[in-house]
């Protein structure tokens, strides 16, 4: 059974569309995702790149239904989560998400940020959740901040906390939306290190990022999006060394210089 599951893709996206403004006649409609179909396998570290407004965030947020798709299907472990009868909250527990602006809970201590999910949603005891929370904090070198509040942390520290907050839920996949874009340059490294560690540990990851070094080093698959479509999809080597798409070449030349 487990063997069987392992051979199947973790996520399968079928003919996904997202049209903004379809219910509002006053605004122009935007085809943010325009017929995307793809599969994400266990252990994949997928890096999504593309120009601004190409639909990267929208696609990522559709994967856990923070953005409700206009049409199409998303299967997680063969369950169609776009089905109205599916308990989406249960699935979201297994799909960690890291935001550009961290979105830590400012009224809770760092440790509480990590334990509230496992305790309230997964029925773990506080003691158990705190023990694991402390382990995770140690893993990212922030155990001494357990009793601090988010506003007492630097940006890089906040993002590391945001990552372990998701990890505390034991997710099957982690979604990152430009996790280093809001950071001062000297803090980018510490966050990328955590992400690389995570990738090496075998976590399935989908990352929207402009960090090409990260993509080259740990990425197993690179996606290039333009106007809501995926126009290139391949392994990092061929992607970076031999890009066939002229617009991709153009894009890479800009971000790599």
């Amino acid at each position: 059974m487990a063997e069987n599951l392992f051979n199947k893709p973790l996520i399968r996206v079928e003919n996904l569309f997202k049209i903004f403004g379809e219910n509002d006649t006053k605004k122009p409609t935007v085809n943010a995702i325009d017929n995307v179909s793809l599969e994400i396998n266990r252990g994949d570290v997928m890096v999504i790149i593309g120009p601004s407004g190409s639909g990267k965030s929208t696609f990522l947020r559709s994967l856990n239904l923070l953005e409700q798709p206009s049409s199409g299907h998303i299967y997680v472990n063969d369950v169609d989560i776009t089905d109205k009868n599916v308990d989406i909250d249960k699935h979201r527990q297994k799909m960690g998400m890291v935001f550009q602006h961290f979105n830590l809970f400012p009224h809770l201590t760092i440790l509480r940020n990590l334990t509230i999910g496992p305790e309230k949603l997964q029925g773990r005891s506080i003691k158990d959740a705190e023990r694991e929370g402390m382990e995770l904090l140690e893993r990212v070198g922030l155990a001494d901040k357990a009793r601090s509040y988010p506003n007492q942390l630097s940006g890089g520290q906040k993002q590391r906390i945001a990552i372990v907050r998701s990890l505390a839920m034991h997710p099957d996949i982690m979604l990152f939306d430009e996790p280093t874009s809001a950071l001062d340059p000297e803090m980018v490294g510490e966050v990328l290190e955590i992400m690389k560690d995570l990738a090496r540990s075998g976590m399935t990851m989908v990352c929207v990022t402009h960090e090409m070094g990260f993509a080259r080093e740990v990425g197993t698959r690179i996606l290039f999006m333009e106007n809501g479509r995926v126009t290139a999809d391949g392994a990092p080597d061929e992607f970076f060394n031999n890009p066939s798409n002229p617009r991709l070449r153009d894009f890479l030349s800009k971000v790599l210089q």
Binding site: L66, H91, M97, F99, H101, N103, F105, H107, G117
Partner: peptide, 29 residues
């Protein structure tokens, strides 16, 4: 901030739980 709401929902909290644990405590403060 809307991000607070998204953070709660993305962790798997439903609407009411997100309100209760994250939005209202901050709003009241």
């Amino acid at each position: 901030d809307e991000g607070q709401f998204e953070a709660g929902r993305s962790l798997g909290f439903n609407y009411a739980q997100t309100m209760r644990y994250f939005i209202l405590p901050q709003a009241l403060k």
